[in-house]
Design a protein around this nucleic acid. Sequence first.
DNA 1: GTCCAGGTCGCGC
DNA 2: GCGCGACATGGA
Length: 305
Amino acid sequence: MEPQHHSHTIKEPAATLFDFEAAARSHGWVALRPFEWDEATATLGRIHRLEQGQIVRLNMRDDSRDSTAGVQVEVESAEPLTGSQEAEIRRIVRRMLRLDEDLADFYRLAAQQNGWTLNLKPGGGRLLRCPTLFEDIVYTLCTTNIAWSGTIRMVDRLTAKLGDALPGRTDWQAFPTPAAIAAAGPEFLKQETGLGYRSLYVWELATGIVDGRCDLTVFEDPSLTPADLLKALRQIKGVGGYAAATILMLLGRYEHLAIDSELRAHVSRKYFEGQPVTDAQIQTIYEPWGRWRYLAYWFDAPSSA
DNA sequence: GTCCAGGTCGCGC
DNA sequence: GCGCGACATGGA
């Protein structure tokens, strides 16, 4: 911690039952920069670039007191926070940890389903998101056709090469903005970040946002059906069936499974004695979960074998 | 060297 | 609408 930096603490309550550590760690995003997890203090860190360009470091911890579950956010910044900056931080913290999602319906269903054992803690079921949908989509593109170690490496380099840093802390870099990625160009991405053929997809997405062709805020419209969203998401180059369903999950819609090699392997092992499975068979397995299919799969206990 | 990883695209039928 | 090869990269 640099002495010349300002530190400011914010508390945000959760709308409903909430498990901070489960929200932070239940899926892989926590391993992707600029997220970090500190085991000793159970702290989720993220460097973030605010809309006006100021870089902040957010240190998020559990804040469960007086029967009010929530998160405590320590903000480190070069300059004192303005009111609108604090409001922006509150917004992104609520988005990252899904403090406004109500999963009561899912919990109820989980308690009723016979023959299912979900690895689900009370207040669990929230899956960590990035501060912005753009970042979530780039992360998702970096999970396609690659081993998880490759995803970590690509996101790491992308951030290291193109992310703005907190003044005085060159290692505290935010995730790059669409403008930075667009300006870098596809060749730079390919040469410097190891994104491979995904470079063009990520660059096109960033460029579309910068010049206004692509407006990601439309995906946050709650009146859109999951089917509409899937169709619209697949218009993004590089986003196929798996990625679209993953992004749907990140948007808080859980009715579609993101069928990939992991899900196939899981269903094959647990329900088909290791035999190959079709997509239709996978759909059938999780069909009883209705609009909670994705979460049912995600927390479905692996076969003990 | 060869194969493949938490897929997707663009083609040809 | 379906099957197929190509696609960048790094690790096994």
